[in-house]
């Protein structure tokens, strides 16, 4: 049986893949591919955040889960979105140097954020949301 941690961690990995595709294209100077890859990455990230902010986090809160960690995760989402916006601007201006610096920064912010979720928040969610977990995963998939 799949867990919330498994499902959401796999979602992280697919965002990572999209991130790498966009970065590869920028470094290769192929801005046409870079633009579509970056847009795909942005969409993947936005969907992942919706899965968490619209479905998973409210479910954790309703089950009397810990508020502090959820609050911190939301704040980090805002940080990540800010960086993605700045990257979008450098895609428009085709500024590879600025994109490279921002994507380096985003990678670390994103990875340490994922680490906290995968090691702490998702296991908590799996524990307190054990009942009805499959229905919840279905709702996450539907986003």
């Amino acid at each position: 049986m799949s867990t919330l941690a498994d499902y959401m961690s796999t979602d992280h990995k697919s965002c990572d893949e999209a991130f790498a595709l966009a970065e590869d294209a920028v470094y290769a100077g192929d801005w046409v591919t870079a633009e579509s890859a970056f847009n795909a990455f942005g969409k993947d990230m936005a969907r992942h955040f919706r899965r968490e902010e619209d479905v998973l986090f409210p479910a954790i809160m309703n089950a009397n889960g810990p508020q502090g960690p959820v609050q911190v995760m939301r704040m980090e989402h805002a940080q990540i979105n800010e960086l993605i916006e700045q990257m979008a601007a450098s895609v428009v201006t085709r500024n590879a140097k600025s994109y490279g610096g921002l994507s380096e920064t985003l990678l670390i912010v994103m990875q340490q954020h994922n680490l906290k979720e995968e090691q702490i928040l998702y296991p908590i969610a799996d524990r307190i949301l054990a009942v009805g977990r499959e229905a919840l995963i279905d709702r996450l998939k539907a986003v």
Binding site: P66, G68, P69, V72, M75, I120, I124
Partner: peptide, 9 residues
Amino acid sequence: MSTAALSTE
């Protein structure tokens, strides 16, 4: 399990 740990502070 302690969850207070997960804070940017």
